[in-house]
Amino acid sequence: MTYDPIGRLLLTPVDREAPERVARLRALGLGERPEPAFDAFARELAQLTGAPYAMVNFLGEECQFFAGLHAPSRAGEGRFMARDLGYCPYVVVRRKALVLEDVRDFPRFAANALVDEIGIRSYLGAPLIDRTGLALGTVCVADTEPRRWGRSGLDTIKSFAAELMTRIRRREDGLIIW
């Protein structure tokens, strides 16, 4: 974590792997354009969890890119988001799943602009760990209501992250084409 000049804790932790991640994403051909297969993956995750928002999110040095997106129509127009917004950058740097049943219960996360701008109240995300050991991004869901994700939610998001990484590996190996 870092602090700004007046001593406030910043949400986005220092991400020392960002340059290496960007190079890996480019090598994989990911993180620069929407992909229908990732949109379908996000839609399936949203349907399974009942969450209005689901994303396949890749993180660059300056921004986040939703290569897969399921969102209410008006909110789903943009695929880019600043790195200091949302909860995914924290998941990537931590390299662990994050469960926030009510973001307002956590001072570090309650002040995030997504709470005020979109009304996000709960989040569930897991990192996408590549075969090289890099965290490329996340698979996540969010809701405008507090949610009790519980153990089953955590297991679901981890399972979806593992499934997506399997598909990405198979794509890299030329075994499947999306």
Rank of each mutant, 00 (worst) to 15 (best):
D39A: 05
L164F: 09
A67Q: 15
A18R: 14
V14W: 08
W178H: 12
R94D: 15
C63S: 12
D155W: 06
L175Q: 15
R43A: 15
G119W: 03
Y3P: 00
G78M: 11
A42Y: 09
A54G: 10
L136N: 08
W178K: 00
L164S: 10
P89W: 00
E101H: 06
D116K: 14
L124P: 06
R74S: 05
P36V: 11
I177G: 06
D105C: 07
Y90A: 07
V139G: 03
E61Q: 14
E117C: 01
E61Y: 02
D173C: 10
A135I: 10
G29Y: 11
E61D: 09
L30N: 09
Q64F: 01
P13V: 02
D84Q: 13
L164P: 07
G68W: 01
S73F: 04
P19H: 07
A54F: 09
W178T: 06
D105W: 04
Y123I: 11
V22N: 09
P5M: 05
L85F: 13
I157N: 03
F160S: 02
T49E: 02
Y53E: 00
D143Y: 04
L175P: 02
L85P: 00
D116W: 02
G153L: 08
K96C: 05
W178Y: 14
L114S: 02
V103Q: 04
D84K: 11
I129R: 14
V22G: 06
R79I: 08
R170V: 00
P34H: 03
L11H: 07
A113K: 14
G137C: 03
E101L: 01
E20Y: 08
T2R: 15
T49V: 07
A27D: 15
G78C: 04
L11G: 13
G119C: 01
L100H: 03
T138P: 04
K158R: 15
F160P: 00
P5G: 07
A97W: 05
R108V: 12
D39E: 05
A23R: 15
R83K: 14
S159E: 11
T138K: 01
I6L: 14
P52G: 01
L30Y: 06
E35D: 15
I129Y: 06
D15Q: 07
L100K: 01
S122N: 11
A111E: 12
G50M: 10
A126K: 03
I120V: 15
P5S: 11
L9W: 05
E77H: 13
F109Q: 05
F66L: 08
G153A: 06
P107A: 05
G68P: 08
V141R: 08
F65Y: 14
V115I: 03
R24P: 12
L124N: 02
T138R: 04
G31I: 08
P89G: 04
G31W: 09
E117T: 14
L59K: 00
A126Y: 07
A113H: 10
L85N: 13
G50F: 11
F58A: 09
L10A: 11
M1W: 03
A18G: 10
G174M: 08
R74M: 10
G174C: 09
F66H: 07
A67T: 14
